[in-house]
Design a protein around this nucleic acid. Structure first.
Lengths: 221, 221
DNA sequence: CATGAATTTTAAGTGAATCTTAAGGCGGCT
DNA sequence: AGCCGCCTTAAGATTCACTTAAAATTCATG
């Protein structure tokens, strides 16, 4: 689960990032309104935590702009403002929840879980350097640009990313991606690795998809 | 929109009922935990407003029982208890929000709207390039010209637009648009996509409704 | 109820995209 | 140097979606 924090006070941002990472979330931080908006547009997140008062754009502006672009990512405001008018304005702008500072981390955590809950199946996502693979929507991005992959290309990349850092033997790949369980001598894997590297523009210098001669392949970042 | 209030203090119950009815909601009231539970099970509601302290069963018990029966109706706790432990317990039990008394009616109203939003809030209009789909009036326009769609055509387009930018798998489409929950292989989706593209005059060059071979379709602009 | 029109679903032929096979070339390893 | 294994490309096989037409169902109407 990926969370973006948009918060300008470094102390609070650090505290949140650390706490959420300990809970197993992948956390990015943006320090200004425009930076947060750009980041949220660039990559898919599962949840946004947005401070109300921000340099550049207010949190309210960020929220409005995202919703205007049909971005329905759950968004929780995190703020010292606690007048009723502000709460209402925030929720009307399309926010999903609103927590007043000072807050207890436990409560924030639970409210985050509530927002992620209705998303149903956990949207499985894997990353490899600049590459993001979303299993549920069958989409792949490199540097925030969407890359169109065919079924087999996607399945192969998914298998390598699920085993990131581990060397995958050719035999395992054939069994898991092609579902062939007898000995089989073929060049399909080579052909597909070639297609993947081409589409993802991975050069020989990159080490994202390495060949292990005589064994198989590894994905590492 | 139907709301059930479970609250034992007659004054508060009456105040809420009147306020919500003025906003156009259909409101029922139950005064005890067991009565509320029975009422919620007997009829479908769009939202439950539940007091924490109730005679018979606590609000927490009511919430737990409903969730245990796979009832996912949005539920908001309404309570004087304001310790962090209680908030967390409430959210963990499956509640969607938690408002502390005393609260402003305006804030409650907005939080109710947030919960109802995904099921039909204010943003009932979707756009895709020159195409506009209005859910509430069941109308579709392209370049300000109205296009007549049948029910299934409309439902399919609505589903794709609600998930704009995300790839929709054939399986998800069959489940959400046709409400078929077992495996089913058929060509209906193809036929309807064809009809949609024809009526909306979408050519192969347009990328509004793209096919993802082997997976499904995406709407993008 | 019976009829006809509109909508929804099934079915089949066609064509294009994807998958697989195969072969030549290149580079590392012994 | 020579072998083996990987890369690359292109052509054949196959799968899947598009398209059309006809059958089944639903809906409104007399």
């Amino acid at each position: 689960m990926r969370i973006l924090i948009v918060e300008d006070e470094p102390g609070i941002a650090r505290f949140l990032k650390q706490g959420l990472e300990e809970e197993g979330f992948a956390v990015d931080v943006a320090a200004t309104g425009p930076a947060g908006l750009a980041q949220a547009q660039a990559q898919p997140y599962d949840l946004l935590l947005v401070d109300w008062m921000l340099p550049g754009l207010t949190g309210l502006d960020v929220c409005r702009q995202l919703r205007a672009q049909q971005d329905q990512t759950p968004l929780i405001f995190l703020t010292a403002k606690d007048t009723v008018q502000d709460t209402i304005a925030g929720l009307q702008a399309g926010a999903n929840d609103y927590i007043k500072k000072p807050f207890h981390f436990e409560e924030l955590l639970e409210r985050i879980r509530v927002q992620l809950r209705p998303a149903g199946g956990p949207s499985e996502r894997f990353t490899l350097g600049p590459i993001v693979l979303d299993v549920s929507t069958h989409q792949v991005y490199k540097d925030d640009e969407e890359i169109a992959l065919t079924q087999k290309e996607f399945a192969l990349l998914e298998y390598l990313l699920r085993n990131k850092g581990k060397v995958c033997r050719r035999q395992s790949i054939i069994e898991n991606v092609w579902d062939i369980h007898f000995e089989y001598n073929t060049g399909v894997i080579d052909v597909y690795m070639n297609a993947l590297r081409k589409k993802l523009k991975i050069t020989k210098d990159d080490e994202f998809l390495q060949t292990i001669r005589g064994i198989g392949y590894v994905a590492r970042d």
